[in-house]
Amino acid sequence: MSAKTRLPVGQEAIRIKGWFGAHRYLILRRLSQSFFLGLFLLGPWFGIWWVVGTLAGSRTFEVLPLTDPLVLLQSIAAGHLPELTALVGAIIVLAVYALIGGRVYCSWVCPINPVTDAAHWLHERLGLQKGWQPKRSARLWVLGTVVVVSALNGTIAWELVNPVTILHRGLVFGMGFAWVVVAAVFLFDLLVSRRGWCSHICPVGAFYGLVGTKSVVRVSAANRVSCDDCMDCYAVCPENHVISPALKGKPGDTPVILSPDCTNCGRCIDVCAVDVFAFTHRFDPRVSETAKPAVDAPSEYAA
């Protein structure tokens, strides 16, 4: 184990790239999350009704319908054939996420993401054990269960408990006891299962993962020859099994992270001091041949 692996995560990147350089995508993501939430809050807070509705279904500038495709899928499973407006809205959403990465929804839009990120931050801060770690495929089972229960019960089942829409609707229309659901997710991630909700359970993320299986926008470990095995990317990545195939691929293997589990959050790009990662498209096979000159750890960090 090199001296660097014992450094706090991202310390090296902060030293080289500066704090903002090492938090660029994190800041952009928070801005994006605030932006999409803010669009919905402009109406109820300031009377500017550009976007009306919730994440489940909305209308932008009186013309653009958007519908959550998973909610609509449950509705269809429950035996309702939706009107054209909702179908068009769902197709638009599907098309966009199929292009830019399904789980971009998770890391750039979903209002629960800051909650689980905060839980993870505190989890690391307190040095807690990772706890219960269900298999990654568990969320696909949950997704299947949700659709089956919808079909058997004739209701949109997941919307009764979905923390994503419950929180979003709560903020836009009135919280009620929605904060209890949010607190439950926070405590689950903090005390029961590290990264448990978003990376193991949530069927919404599982669904969007399926949507983005062949998505175009991807992170590539193009500069993988420079990797100095500091493991910071693995430490920040919420789905860190996606990294190895690209980063540790043999010569000739694609450097592009192709797993649909990747949320395109860009944190690996942030924390990498030697700039191994970059956003690109899935058909970009470029790999650097020569390593960046290695950056020596400053003497105060040396073991």
Binding site: V52, G53, G57, H80, I156, G170, G174, G176
Partner: peptide, 23 residues
């Protein structure tokens, strides 16, 4: 089975008659 709980009917009600059930 049909209502996706988007709240568009609530927003378009000019008399604020409709509301969404809070959890």
């Amino acid at each position: 089975s049909a209502c996706i709980r988007c709240g568009l009917c609530v927003r378009d009600c000019p008399y604020d008659t409709l509301k969404l059930a809070e959890l």
